[in-house]
Write a protein that binds this DNA or RNA. Sequence first.
DNA 1: TTAATTCGTACGCGACCTGGACTAATTAAA
DNA 2: TTTAATTAGTCCAGGTCGCGTACGAATTAA
Lengths: 406, 406
Amino acid sequence: MRQAPLRHGTMRERNLAVVLGEIARRQPVSRARLAEATGFTKTTVSSLVASLAGAGLVREDGPVRDGERGRPATAVSVNGDRVAGLGLEINVDYLAACVLDLGRRIRHRHIVAADNRDRAPERVIAALTGLAARAISAAGDQGLSVAGAVVALPGTLDQGGGLVRSAPNLGWDDVAAGELLDAGLPPLPLPADYDNEANLAALGELWFGDGPALGSYVHVSGEIGIGAGIVVDGRVFRGAHGFAGELGHVVVDPGGPPCACGGRGCLEQVAGQEAILRGAGMTAATATSSASPDGPLSALVARLERGDERALAAVRRAGEALGQALATAVNLLDPDTIVLGGIFSGLAPWARPATEAALAGGAGLVRRSPPRITVSRLGGDAAALGAASLVVERVLDDPARLVIRC
Amino acid sequence: MRQAPLRHGTMRERNLAVVLGEIARRQPVSRARLAEATGFTKTTVSSLVASLAGAGLVREDGPVRDGERGRPATAVSVNGDRVAGLGLEINVDYLAACVLDLGRRIRHRHIVAADNRDRAPERVIAALTGLAARAISAAGDQGLSVAGAVVALPGTLDQGGGLVRSAPNLGWDDVAAGELLDAGLPPLPLPADYDNEANLAALGELWFGDGPALGSYVHVSGEIGIGAGIVVDGRVFRGAHGFAGELGHVVVDPGGPPCACGGRGCLEQVAGQEAILRGAGMTAATATSSASPDGPLSALVARLERGDERALAAVRRAGEALGQALATAVNLLDPDTIVLGGIFSGLAPWARPATEAALAGGAGLVRRSPPRITVSRLGGDAAALGAASLVVERVLDDPARLVIRC
DNA sequence: TTAATTCGTACGCGACCTGGACTAATTAAA
DNA sequence: TTTAATTAGTCCAGGTCGCGTACGAATTAA
C-alpha cells in the first residue's frame, strides 16, 4: 500500500485525531490522564486540546474534585453542543433523516413514508433534500452546525460514491444520485458521501447496538432483498468495487428457483421477504389487505405469535437457508459475530434456532466454535443512523479539517 | 481504528518508507524525480536517501546522461546486493526454502521431498531449520545478509503467529511451531513470522505472477485440501482470527457426502484432490503405483491428455463445483480477479471452462461482469516465494528498523 | 564563450514535540 | 494553622526534521 508523505502539518493533524479519539473513549478525562494514555507530554496534550477546544469539538467541564490529593484536574470531554452529522436514507418505502451530535446523541430524527418504487429519481431526491434542509435547521435551532452528510441508498454504488449502478427495488439504473444531491444540499464543511444501505446499517449497529464489542462482524440487513454489511476492525469491507457482501445471492439450493441474477436457489429466493410470505401462504394482496399498519411483516409476525404452522415452517425454512449462507460467509470472512438486522431482527424469535443449527453444522472444522449471533435492536432507519454516525466518526477521525475552518 | 501518536521519529520512519517505496517503483530514478513524485523538497529527499544508502538498502548508480540538457542526474536504485529475505515452507510432502534479495530476485531456492504426514513436529522443524541455515549461508556467500524469515504452514494458525491450531494433513494439533522455529533459527534483525500457506501462496502470486495488476483477488490454492488466499489492496485479508478464506468448506451440494468439518457437500469433498482421483477411477494405490514421479496428479494429467473420459468428467465436475463456490466468494468478497493455483493450475486446461460457466451463472446480477480468471504460473513452492516476498515487502514498508541497526 | 537548464547541497527558518522547571490547587500530617 | 506531599497544568529552552531559498556543479544550446 502506497503511504503518504508525512510533514509537520500532517503530524499535527494525526495527533489531534489521536487526542480527540482518546477523549471520546474516556469521556471526562484530564489532560494529565491523556498524556499518560497517549504518551505525549503534558505540554503537547495541552496544545492539542486547546486547538480542539478552539474548534468547538472539545469542552472543559471545570475542575473535578476526585478525593485524591493534589491539584484537582479539569475534565475535558467531547463537546456535543456544537458540531453534528447528518444521515440521510432513501429506501423503497420511506425516506429518513437523522442528526447526531458529536456525542452520538440523536438530536433530530424524521422518517417519512413514501412509495419510491419507480418514482423519478429527481423527485425522490428533491423530497430528501427537503428533509435534509429541515434537519439542518432543526440542528441549528439547537446550536449545532452540521459538519457533513452521508446518504444511504438501497442499491449498488460506484466505488467513488455518487453513481447508483443499479437499485432494482427502486427501479434505478445508472442514476447520478451524488450530483443531484450535491446540487440540492446546502454546502457543508465536509463533502457529502454515499454508500450502500446495508453497509451503513452495519455501521449503525457498531455505534448503537452492541458497539465495538462486536469486533468484526457480518450484519444481515434484509428488507425486500437480502444484503450484508461486513465490518472488520470498525471499517466496512467493500471489496474491489464496493459490491462485497451480496449475501442475497449466495446459492443455498443449487436446484432451486431461478433468480433475477441468473443463478438458481439464491438465498433471496428462499429467505427474502416475498419468499417467506409466499411460503406462509400470504400473497402480497393478503398481506397488504390486512390491517397491519407496518406493512406485510407485522401481519406475518401476528400469525407467528398465533402459532400458525405454515408461517412457522416458512420462517424456519428461511432461517435455515440463512444459516447455510452464513456458514459460507463465516468460512470466507471469519467474523466474530453475526448480527441479524432488517426483517430478520423481527423474525429472530422464530428463525434463529434454525439459523444457529445450520450455522453450527456448516462452519465447524476450522473455527472451533461458530460466531456469536446477535439480534439488532435498531429500527428501520438503522442505515440513516449509521450514515450520521459515519459523519461523526469522520470528524473524530480527522478533526483537522474542522479545526482549520472554525 | 485507534491511531498511533506521531512524533518526529515516526515521521522520519514513514518518510524513509515513502522514498524507498518510490525508488522501488521507479527503479533507476534521480533525487529530483523523487522530490517531484513525493512532494518532498530536494533537500529532504537527499537526506532520506542518504540514510537509506547508509543502511545498504539503496545504491547510487552513477551519473546518467539522458540527452536532456542540464546537469545529469545520479540514478538511485534499490540495492539488491546487501539485504535479503528468507521464505520457508512446510508442506505435506516437501520442505522448501527460498532467499530473495531486495530486488525480489531469487538468490537461492531449495525444495526437499519429505513425507511429513504424522512425523513429529520437532523432527519436521529440525529439518526445516537445517534448510534455513543452509539458505542463510548461501545468502552470505553472495554478500547478502538475511533481514528476516517468514514460514508458511499448511494449517490454521493462531492470529498472533506461532501456534498451529490444526493442520489436519500433517496431523498436527496445537503445535507451538513458532517457539520451536524461533529456537532453531539464528537471530535475525526482524522477528520471524508465520502464516498460512494459502495466504502466502496468494502473496507469491502478487509478486511473481501478474503482479499488482491483479488488484484485489482470490487465489485458490488446493493441494489435498482447498484453501484460498484473499488479497485486497496488496494485503492479505485474514478475518477476525486469521481463518478467512476457507473456500474448501463452502457447501456446493447440500445433500452431498459428509465432510470432516461437520457439513455436507463441502467443496473439498467434491473438488479436492482425493475426490477428483476417486471420480477418475484412480484409487490412491493406482495413483502412487503409477510411475509418475510428481505424485498422483501427473498420472491424472496423463490420462486427461490421453482423453480419458472418466478423468475428464471428474475434472469437469470439480471445476464446476469450484465455480459454484467461487461465485459465492465473488458475491461476498467482490474481487477483481480469481487466480487458480495449487492443483487447479495444472488442471486448468480441462477444468476452467466448467469453472467459468458456473461462475458466470452464479454471480451475475450485482457485478455486471464476473471477475477475470487467471492461472498461476508458480510452482509448488509458491508459498515459500510468497513468504520470502513478505520479508522483502516488510523491509521496503518499514526500512527504519534496518536503518537503525546497520 | 555565454546563456539556459537541471541536479544536488548548504544554511537558515519554522513547525512541533520533548523535558525540566515552575506555579497552582488540593489533601495529609504535624 | 502551618507545612509537606502530591497532582495538574503552563512556560520556556532545546532538539528534530521538513521547507525554502540560494548557490555551486555539470551539462546542452546558441
